[in-house]
Design a protein around this nucleic acid. Sequence first.
RNA 1: GGGGAGGUAGCGAAGCGGCCAAACGCAUCAGACUGUAAAUCUGACGCCCCUCGGGCUUCAAAGGUUCGAAUCCUUUCCUCCCCA
Length: 302
Amino acid sequence: MAAPPVVVIVGPTASGKSALALGVAGRRGGEIVSCDSLQVYRGLDLGSAKPTVEERRAVPHHLVDVVDPDQEFSAADYGRRARAAIGEITARGRLPIVAGGTGLYLRALRQGLFEGPSRDPDLRRRLETIAEARGDAALHRLLARVDPEAAGRIAPRDRVRVVRALEVYRTSGRTLTAHHRADRRARDPYRWLVVGLDPPREVLRRAVEARTRAMMAAGLLDEVRALLARYPGRPRPLDAIGYRQAAAVLRGALTDDEAQRDMVKATMRYAKRQMTWFRHQEDVRWFADGEVALRAIGEWLG
RNA sequence: GGGGAGGUAGCGAAGCGGCCAAACGCAUCAGACUGUAAAUCUGACGCCCCUCGGGCUUCAAAGGUUCGAAUCCUUUCCUCCCCA
């Protein structure tokens, strides 16, 4: 029996992934598995460009609205849940369409992450304190002592990664490098088609500008005001593009106009990072245009 | 017409005799990424050879002073502000 097909649609934000996914789903009886680190959070609707209620009524969406913004969620959680969702969809005889721009999440889904410890907030706090008090270089030296290979790969100023590497070592007793080595990939039960959307920069820029304007007009500030009232601790997802600018406006630190300009800039930079990831980390068939991509997917599915 | 401020790399902006191809910020380009990922971080960024390095042309324009000028002087052009 042939391995069931899974269509994956990647690319930078605002490149038309959702529309393409909806197009494929409509034609092929598919269900969409979002691959987006923001859309998993309930309440982050406008700023995450979440699919609308109508879209979600027309086509089932998975991995959207699965946790609250102050709950812990990780790439590994995503991978587990997305795999489960794909299993159910294929069991129903339908086509899973994974769509989204979060590269790490897609990796977690397809390859899985190494078998290692999850985050340890207390330990992270302690490590952060060391970095604050003695500097990033000092923390990096700590890492160099236990895991010189990881230290060689990670820039001293990249605190997020230095902290995680130390966290892995201290909570599991094994270095990050050792975990990576021991990492064994399970055989993959699916046939994957990874399609990438890469519209010309200027086209993307205009789409980002239009979407940013639309988000503000639709009430992003109200959304953020409500979220901040409900989660005064300002959980991590609220640092995302759009949310941090909206928060700055509410605080009086930015005007609407400045916030919009900043959102566009930040989004374009983000799009760049996404392209870098997908160009180098995934085997993608690229298309500048959604229509052409849609036809190619049709042919591949046969 | 008189007085004042100024013209520096794609933009903003430092520098005000040598350590200046010229700080810094932005934009741009390239890259990394294994449980924070719309996060976090790195590099390039006058031109050419490109390896440490070397060569070439720049700081509105032209002349000048000086061993040496983005920095001082003169003239010209342009911008902004104030008074007429």
